[in-house]
Write a protein that binds this DNA or RNA. Structure first.
Lengths: 215, 215
DNA sequence: CTACTGTATATATATACAGTAG
DNA sequence: CTACTGTATATATATACAGTAG
């Protein structure tokens, strides 16, 4: 049951949101007073209390600008993940996400929280540009972005970013351990599997999502 | 040329960002002092001035908590778009985005700004769940999300959400106008084109992106 | 009761100032 | 110079209080 907002309270909510967008910090009671043409600070305080009771705001006692719009952050449902380069077609992968924080500065993108299944996962997510069509039968094509969860091992058949140590190349394939060696299986009927020594393969991440953009 | 941050300044930046995330409003000089184990408020002020000079912060004079992290809002590169239901496999499409605002309350998701080519486009974007495999050869499969830009017409061959007026069904197909009638072409070799009277077809949007999530 | 006016005030807070150490 | 310590202070700001109108 969402309580209906009185016009004055609605004006105040609007003002607070706009103020936040413009300044990056919340308004004071007085800012609201002048911004909404209210006669005195008490009226603002009175209405703020109503908004808190209604669950629209949170307030910290005796804290200047201690106003928080409930659900504002919750509404920002995106997660920023680093884009760590390109994969497949023999291009080398740059550094990996131990230091995701620094990578963030360079290139990053926003994905929906839905893509990040668990909250704990967020820090382990990164994205790669796909070069080449070796996974075309898995409906991933040249130019797509794949979202991966960083991990060092994988279940047989999982789609992974594999790092070939000797070749210093990264590649997007399905992972099949076969004793001493590993089969890296493309999903493209025109291409055949790659067999490599198990010690020469490092799993870097498992594909959890795909993003494609049409021009 | 990005100036290198001193460790203390780095700690302050971190603290401010964390404080903002936790409280929704910026910290006071004193909050920073205690949070970063700094001996006095003057040292905080001194370092904040350095951060402003370096372009990392903006400060409003004589404003309590008047600290703004430069680029924080700009860094939030996501766009929230409404999810307006499902498409294809004969399921009807719910209301359409004249009133995107109201739809937003119900179901929405976050996409990267890269998906929204121009800023003006943002308001016209919406998403649909894909049901069925009629576009499998276009590398779009059952369960994917398609991002569309709302528009009433389309170029021949474009992938669109088409509304069949009589049938009251929405379908995801390639659009080919052929005089009096329209050919709606699936991208699935096992399926054949649908021919409908031109007056019975309304274009609702053009596909601009695809999102897929693996379990 | 609700929705205000108008004023007063304690304190939260930015900031100035005088030093000190390397 | 830079990077602090330690203290003082003006003011920005939340909030209490005494009323008033319907």
């Amino acid at each position: 049951m969402v309580e209906q907002l009185r016009p004055r309270q609605q004006a105040i909510m609007r003002f607070i949101e706009d103020f936040l967008d413009e300044n990056g910090y919340p308004p004071t009671v007085r800012d609201i007073q002048y911004g909404c043409n209210i006669s005195s600070t008490s009226v603002v305080d009175y209405n703020l209390k109503g908004l808190v009771r209604g669950g629209f705001l949170r307030r910290s006692k005796e804290v200047s600008r201690g106003i928080e719009v409930v659900g504002r952050r919750e509404r920002e449902r995106g997660v920023t993940i680093p884009v760590l380069g390109a994969i497949a077609a023999g291009e080398p992968l740059p550094v990996f996400p131990q230091d995701v924080a620094t990578a963030l500065e360079e290139d990053s993108m926003e994905i929906d929280t839905g893509m990040a299944t668990k909250a704990a996962t967020k820090e382990k997510l990164f994205a790669l540009h796909v070069k080449g069509d070796s996974m075309i039968d898995a409906l991933i094509r040249d130019g797509d972005m794949v979202v991966l969860e960083a991990q060092e091992s994988a279940e047989p058949g999982e789609m992974v970013a594999a790092w070939l140590v000797q070749e210093e190349e990264a590649t997007l394939k399905r992972f099949f351990p076969e004793g001493e060696r590993v089969r890296l299986q493309p999903e493209n009927t025109t291409m055949s599997a790659i067999y490599v020594d198990a010690r020469n393969v490092q799993i870097r991440g498992r594909v959890v999502g795909v993003l494609r953009r049409y021009e």
